[in-house]
């Protein structure tokens, strides 16, 4: 059995709420099945108050083995570096202080969600609480811990970025860690099993994208890249390959991907639901797409847009069905 401690730092708790949406099997059975024993989770465990303090002290003093430490939420360093914007209740110490003491005892440290990974929404708009991620400050390596910091098992902090995280991203990371597998990480320390995909992959609006048949307003079903701020062609995540809550995703819900798996997504320097443009041309290219080719292909495909696709893009449902081809 591998032991797991879960702490909630400065965040919304939404990654835990999302984790509870795990299905087939549910999250509790998944953890059991993976051989993970939950030492404590703030939302799930019965232990409270002094019982928790006893456990935390046992870990920091090396009397309780800790295999995996999950931290959800950013580390609030303010005011003035004291960490007092988040005190761990009943302990007289900041959560920052506790993470600093607990993390060196863990074989693996997992940042659950974009707040824990990079600062995320907790660091938005001037960052009132001086929040950082565990090992990143936005896109810069080095947060609460220095860039060369390593957990007991030799890995850097594993960043399961996302706002919130998909339950599968978390359960699969934990299953792999419990099984002793090495998890390949990308340049922001995110597990490659989901970060090697783009949100664009499997997006139901792909045909609209191919022809640049664009929605003008939210609720129209066309591609949201040109006008509505969608950056699914740049955002990492398998959101449209494995669905959320049964069969959903942001773009399936009719609203743009806001790149929530990326550092600094919280402050895009424009309205989230509006694509910034220069001389009428959208800024921002699909990942790995050369600009000249994109421009050429976009203008060509736009000119070639079939009537069906052009009409549907500006409606809130499919108005024109595909033309049937009858067998000869």
């Amino acid at each position: 059995m591998k032991t797991l401690l879960w702490l909630q730092a400065a965040g919304c708790g939404g990654c835990t709420m999302s984790l509870l949406c795990a299905e087939s099997p549910d999250v509790i059975e998944t953890l059991e099945d993976a051989g993970i024993r939950l030492l404590w989770h703030p939302a799930l465990s019965v232990e409270t108050g002094a019982e928790v303090l006893t456990l935390l002290n046992a870990i920091t003093e090396g009397r309780q083995v800790l295999d995996i430490l999950c931290v959800e939420g950013a580390i609030a360093r303010g005011p003035a570096g004291t960490g007092r914007f988040q005190m761990l209740a009943g302990t007289g110490h900041s959560l920052m202080h506790w993470v600093e003491r607990l993390a060196p005892r863990a074989a693996h440290v997992v940042a659950v969600g974009s707040c824990a990974a990079f600062g995320g929404v907790t660091a938005a708009g001037g960052n009132p609480s001086d929040a950082v991620g565990l090992q990143y400050d936005g896109g810069h390596s080095g947060g609460l811990f220095a860039p060369d910091w390593r957990a007991g098992g030799g890995d850097p902090v594993i960043n399961i970025a996302g706002c919130p995280t998909h339950p599968g991203w978390v359960t699969e990371t934990l299953m792999l860690l419990a099984a002793g597998e090495e998890i390949a990480l990308d340049g922001f320390s995110r597990p490659r099993f989901y970060a090697d995909h783009l949100v664009h992959h499997g997006c139901p609006k792909n045909e609209f994208y191919e022809y640049k048949a664009s929605a003008r307003e939210l609720s129209e079903i066309g591609c949201m890249m040109e006008n509505l701020g969608c950056i699914g062609t740049q955002a990492v995540g398998d959101c449209n390959i494995r669905p959320w809550n049964g069969e959903g995703s942001c773009t399936r819900g009719g609203y743009p991907c806001i790149n929530c798996t990326a550092p600094r997504f919280e402050d895009p320097a424009h309205a989230f639901v509006e694509t910034p443009k220069v001389a009428g041309i959208p800024v921002g290219l699909p990942t790995d797409m050369p600009k000249a080719w994109f421009m050429a292909l976009a203008s060509l495909s736009k000119a070639a847009t079939p009537e069906r696709i052009g009409q549907n893009a500006k409606a809130d449902r499919v108005l024109v069905p595909p033309t049937l081809r009858r067998p000869k």
């Binding site: 809550n245 069969e247 399936r252 819900g253 929530c260």
Partner: peptide, 18 residues
Amino acid sequence: AELLHVMGLLAGKWPHTL
């Protein structure tokens, strides 16, 4: 978790929908 399929159908995902 099964009730929240309402979110997958109407709201894209839960939590944090637009």
